[in-house]
Nucleic acid binder design. Structure first.
Lengths: 186, 206
DNA sequence: GCTTTAAAAAGTAAAAT
DNA sequence: ATTTTACTTTCGAAAGC
C-alpha cells in the first residue's frame, strides 16, 4: 500500500517579508507594469509573477506578503524577482530581507474512502466541525502539529495552518494513525 | 399604569430589551417554520446560556437568535435545514452559519451530524406520499447511509433522492422537479444522488 | 469583523451552450 | 442535458476602517 505521506503535495505557501523602506504605492503602480492598486478597496498593491507563479501584496510600509507559490523555494524566487524589480526602479531594498513562511497548504490522499459521520464521532465532536449542508469536508483541528485538516469522503485531504514542511507530514501520519485506531480507514 | 409601564421601559437595561427582542425573533421564525413549542423553549434556553457565557456581546442578536433556533432543532431532532431559516431571518446565511458554529462550539453542544432520514417524513407529507413510500425511502436512506454513501452530501438532497427512488418503486411517482422543490435543492442534485443510491442498494430487498 | 491574495478538497447552484 | 463558472470551508500575513 502506498504511503499517504508520499502523496503530499504543497499547493500554496504564504510568506511575509519587508524591504525596510517606505513606498509610494501610487508611483509604484505607474512604474510596475501589471500592478493592481485600488487603495479605496485594499491598501496593498497587487503584483503577480509568472515564473514562478505567485502573487505579492506590497504595502506602503514596505512589508510584502507573497502567496500562491507552490514551494518555499518558489516563494524566495518570486520575492527575489520582486526585490530586483524594485531595485531596478531605484528603490533601496535590504540586501537579504528575512522571509517568514506563515502558512503552507498541502493536499494528500489517504487512499481509502472515509465515512465522515463515523469519523466525526470517533475523532470527537469537540475537535470536529462537519456540516455537509454547508461544506462537504470534515474540519479537524489537530493540536500536534498545530494544523487544520479538511477530510473528504473520497479520502482526499487538505492540511493547512502549518508553517513547516514537516507539519503536513506529521499531520498525515497522525491522522492516519487515529483513523486506523478507530478502525475507520478502508 | 401608563407611567409605570414607561418607567419600566426606561429603566430596563439594554440587555433585557435585547433578550426580549431575541426571544421574539425566535418566536417569529419558529412560527414561520412551524417549529414546535418545546423546541422554541430549547432555543430560548440555548440563547440564554449564550448570554450567560457572554457569547452575544459584539455580535448580531438576530444571527445568534437564529443560530440558537437552528441548534435547538438539531438537538431535538427536528429536521430543518439552516436554509429554512435563512428565508425568514433578517441576516445573511453566512452570518447565521458563523454564529451557529460559535454557539455550538462554545456551549459544547456536541451535536451529531444531521441524519438525512430525518427529512424524509416531512418531505413525504408535503408531497402527499403514502406511508409505504415513506418507509421505503427511509429504508433506502438507512441502507446507503450505513455504507457511508452520504459522506459530504447534502442531507436534504440525499433524502430527496431516496424519496424519488422510493416513489418510483411504489408506483406513486413524483417528478424530480416536484421533489426538488419541496426539498429546496435542484433537480440535478436529486438526479445525481438517486443514481448513486440506485447502484448502492439491492432493489429486490426494498 | 471586513477588505485582498492563492490554493486544494467535493458538493451544489446557476448560467451558458 | 452537459459544460463552465462560481461559491461554500480551512489558513496566514499585510494596513486601516
Amino acid at each position: 500500500m502506498t504511503d499517504p505521506a508520499e502523496s503530499i503535495e504543497i499547493q500554496n505557501v504564504v510568506a511575509s517579508t519587508g524591504i525596510g523602506q517606505e513606498l509610494d504605492l501610487e508611483a509604484l503602480a505607474e512604474d510596475l507594469p501589471g500592478a493592481d492598486f485600488n487603495p479605496d478597496n485594499f491598501p496593498g498593491l497587487v503584483y503577480r509573477t509568472q515564473e514562478p507563479k505567485a502573487a505579492a501584496l506590497i504595502f506602503r510600509s514596505g512589508k510584502i506578503v507573497c502567496t500562491g507559490a507552490k514551494s518555499i523555494d518558489d516563494v524566495h524566487e518570486a520575492l527575489g524577482i520582486i526585490f530586483e524589480k524594485l531595485r531596478g526602479l531605484k528603490i533601496p531594498v535590504e540586501d537579504d530581507p528575512d522571509i517568514t513562511v506563515q502558512n503552507i497548504v498541502s493536499s494528500a490522499d489517504l487512499g481509502h474512502q472515509l465515512n465522515l459521520n463515523a469519523l466525526a464521532i470517533g475523532l470527537g465532536l469537540e475537535d470536529v466541525e462537519y456540516e455537509p449542508e454547508q461544506f462537504p469536508g470534515l474540519v479537524y483541528r489537530m493540536d500536534e502539529p498545530d494544523v487544520v485538516i479538511l477530510l473528504f469522503g473520497s479520502g482526499k485531504i487538505v492540511i493547512t495552518g502549518g508553517k513547516r514542511t514537516d507539519d503536513a507530514e506529521e499531520a498525515v501520519e497522525e491522522i492516519v494513525d487515529r483513523i486506523e485506531t478507530l478502525g475507520l480507514l478502508g | 399604569r401608563l407611567r409605570t409601564w414607561q418607567e419600566r421601559i426606561r429603566t430596563q437595561d439594554a440587555g433585557e430589551r435585547n433578550l426580549q427582542f431575541a426571544l421574539s425573533e425566535v418566536e417569529r421564525m419558529s412560527s414561520a417554520q412551524g417549529v414546535p413549542k418545546s423546541v422554541r423553549e430549547v432555543a430560548s434556553m440555548i440563547y440564554r446560556r449564550a448570554l450567560e457565557e457572554d457569547l452575544i456581546r459584539g455580535r448580531s442578536i438576530e444571527a445568534m437568535a437564529t443560530a440558537s433556533l437552528y441548534a435547538a432543532c438539531r438537538q431535538e431532532g427536528i429536521p430543518r435545514s439552516l436554509d429554512d431559516f435563512v428565508g425568514v431571518a433578517r441576516v445573511e446565511r453566512r452570518e447565521i452559519a458563523r454564529a451557529y458554529r460559535y454557539i455550538s462550539g462554545e456551549l459544547r453542544l456536541a451535536l451529531k451530524p444531521v441524519d438525512p432520514a430525518g427529512h424524509v417524513p416531512r418531505f413525504c407529507s408535503e408531497l402527499s406520499l403514502p406511508e409505504e413510500v415513506k418507509r421505503r425511502a427511509t429504508r433506502i436512506v438507512d441502507e446507503t447511509t450505513a455504507q457511508g454513501l452520504h459522506a459530504g452530501k447534502s442531507p436534504t438532497g440525499f433524502a430527496a433522492a431516496a424519496i424519488y427512488l422510493a416513489s418510483m418503486l411504489s408506483d406513486e411517482k413524483r417528478t424530480q422537479s416536484e421533489i426538488a422543490d419541496v426539498a429546496d435543492v435542484t433537480v440535478v442534485t436529486v438526479r445525481n444522488r438517486y443514481k448513486e443510491q440506485m447502484d448502492a442498494v439491492e432493489l429486490g430487498t426494498l
